[in-house]
Simulated scan of single mutants.
Amino acid sequence: MTMKVFRGITCPVCGMACDDIEVWYDEEKQEIIVKNVCREGAPKFKELVSPHRIREPMIKKNGKFVKVSWEEAIEKAAEILANAKRPLLFMGAETSAEAHIVGLHMAEYLGGVVDSNSTI
């Protein structure tokens, strides 16, 4: 069995910033085992290897989603944001503090609005 172990990981889920998490990755089974994590955090780490996870960027063309390069996806996202009259940037609880800062600056620059799951 080939295992990669990552120690001292900070959980991105609820904001408590638990930082003693261990993530074990079984390369053969492509399975993740987590230690020192709560019921909320554990499934989020396991999503990394989920077959339902979108792993490649996709853009809707002619009504269907098509795989594209990261460059094309970023260009499309920038085009959508630049052309939006009042873009909404959704930043969930699982977004890092650094990403929140960038999102807030983007929204301010674009004249947009920021929302999160706290409004639920």
Results as ranks from 00 to 15, higher is better:
A97M: 05
G111A: 10
M91S: 11
H52Q: 13
C18F: 02
F45L: 04
L88N: 06
K46H: 10
R7P: 00
T2S: 14
K64H: 12
S116Y: 02
N36G: 02
E22T: 15
K44L: 10
I21K: 01
T119M: 13
G92A: 15
A78Y: 02
Q30C: 09
A77Y: 03
L88K: 09
W24A: 09
K29V: 07
S69W: 02
P12R: 05
A17S: 10
G103C: 07
V34I: 11
I101D: 11
C38H: 05
S50Q: 07
V5D: 04
V13K: 07
K61N: 08
A107Q: 05
G41F: 00
N117F: 03
S96I: 07
N117A: 12
S116E: 04
E28M: 11
H100I: 08
I33R: 08
I21V: 15
I101K: 14
D26F: 08
A77G: 05
F65Q: 06
K44N: 10
E72F: 01
G15I: 09
E22W: 03
A42Q: 09
I32N: 02
G15S: 08
V5G: 01
W24F: 11
P12L: 10
D19W: 01
E98D: 11
H105C: 06
A73N: 01
E28Y: 09
I74Q: 03
S118M: 12
C11I: 06
P12Y: 04
A99N: 11
I120K: 12
T119C: 12
Q30E: 15
E27G: 03
E75M: 04
G111H: 07
W24I: 14
H100E: 12
Q30D: 15
I33F: 05
C14E: 07
E75V: 08
V102H: 00
P57N: 11
A73F: 06
T10D: 02
M106N: 02
E31Q: 14
L89I: 15
E71A: 13
L89G: 05
M1S: 14
A107V: 08
S116W: 01
A42D: 14
I32V: 15
E94N: 10
E79F: 06
N83A: 13
C11H: 02
A77T: 11
S116M: 04
N62Y: 07
M1T: 14
I80F: 05
